[in-house]
């Protein structure tokens, strides 16, 4: 009786495992396609097909894509943008999340909902006025034009996650600092922030990826080549070399390697942050 149940369970597990294995092979196919297309000559690819192994590995594709596609400009821009946007956005989100989590004041509920509603605002509904605004500020077409909307659209999620995290920090710790004469500012800076490093780090990772990937705002606000970010630059590259498949795939691989590396090494923090607050813990 018992062994029957056990045998059935083992059979069930084997079936599930094989199903997952088959599905994961399908899920990996696009990645394999890019790699197998990027590391060979165009003639080899077209004559022998994607699924064949390359005759000779053409590492030169990557160098060629990097230089003809001007990826050094796009990488520099995306990295600069991340350096400006991520710390600034998360810091002012933390500032806002602190009173929402730990202080009592009028309208706190309404203010929180005011920010949360931003989770549902489509970027499209701000694009045209943002373009006008950036022109008036004289920063249209520069990387600086992206910082204001990127920070604004990041705030709802970041405030939501940080408020949830801050609430888990015992208020006694803040109370102790206040009794020692610390101002609210000092309590925030010296007690709350150091204790929230895990949440802040998670948000940083998520935000780095989101900033690296963002396309629509960058497409609208930036047309000058010197200010393009990686997604806009990659699309431009595709427009110019659309039939040079091997070169194009090398360019795509170049632009996704950073996010894949971040994801693989830091996914533990990343995934936990995305579902934060979605489930009653």
């Amino acid at each position: 009786m018992m062994s029957d149940v056990r045998r059935q369970r083992r059979l069930e597990q084997t079936v599930i495992f094989l199903g997952l294995l088959a599905l994961s092979l399908i899920w990996l196919t696009p990645f394999a396609t890019v790699v197998l297309s990027a590391i060979r000559g165009q003639g080899d690819l077209l004559a022998r097909g994607v699924f064949s192994l390359p005759k000779k590995i053409a590492w030169g594709n990557f160098a060629e894509a990097w230089s003809t596609g001007d990826f050094s400009i796009y990488f520099r821009n995306s990295l600069l943008l991340i350096a400006m946007k991520v710390p600034l956005g998360i810091f002012i989100a933390a500032l806002a999340a602190y009173p929402l989590a730990k202080l009592r004041f009028r309208f706190s509920g309404a203010i929180f909902i005011f920010f949360l509603a931003g989770l549902a605002v489509p970027v499209q509904v701000t694009l045209q006025p943002l373009l006008v605004m950036m022109k008036q500020l004289g920063i249209a077409n520069s990387l600086f034009a992206l910082v204001p909307p990127y920070v604004a659209f990041g705030l709802p999620f970041q405030i939501f996650v940080l408020r949830g995290f801050f609430r888990l920090i015992p208020s006694e710790l803040l109370e102790a600092a206040r009794l020692d004469g610390a101002s609210e500012w000092t309590a925030f800076l010296r007690v709350m922030l150091p204790l929230s490093v895990p949440a802040l780090a998670t948000l940083c990772i998520i935000d780095v990826l989101a900033t690296w990937n963002e396309f629509l705002i960058a497409l609208v606000l930036i047309s000058a080549k010197e200010s393009r970010t990686v997604p806009v630059g990659l699309l431009q590259f595709q427009g110019e070399y659309s039939s040079q498949y091997t070169l194009l795939m090398a360019g795509i691989l170049i632009s996704i390697v950073p996010v894949i590396a971040i994801f693989i090494f830091l996914q533990r923090y990343f995934v936990a942050g995305l579902t934060a607050g979605a489930v009653k813990g």
């Binding site: 690296w212 194009l248 795509i252 632009s255 996010v259 894949i260």
Partner: peptide, 14 residues
């Protein structure tokens, strides 16, 4: 985690 532009271009090739 991939940029959707890259996803779109990869699948356009597929």
């Amino acid at each position: 985690v991939l940029p959707l532009v890259a996803v779109g271009l990869i699948w356009a090739w597929m």
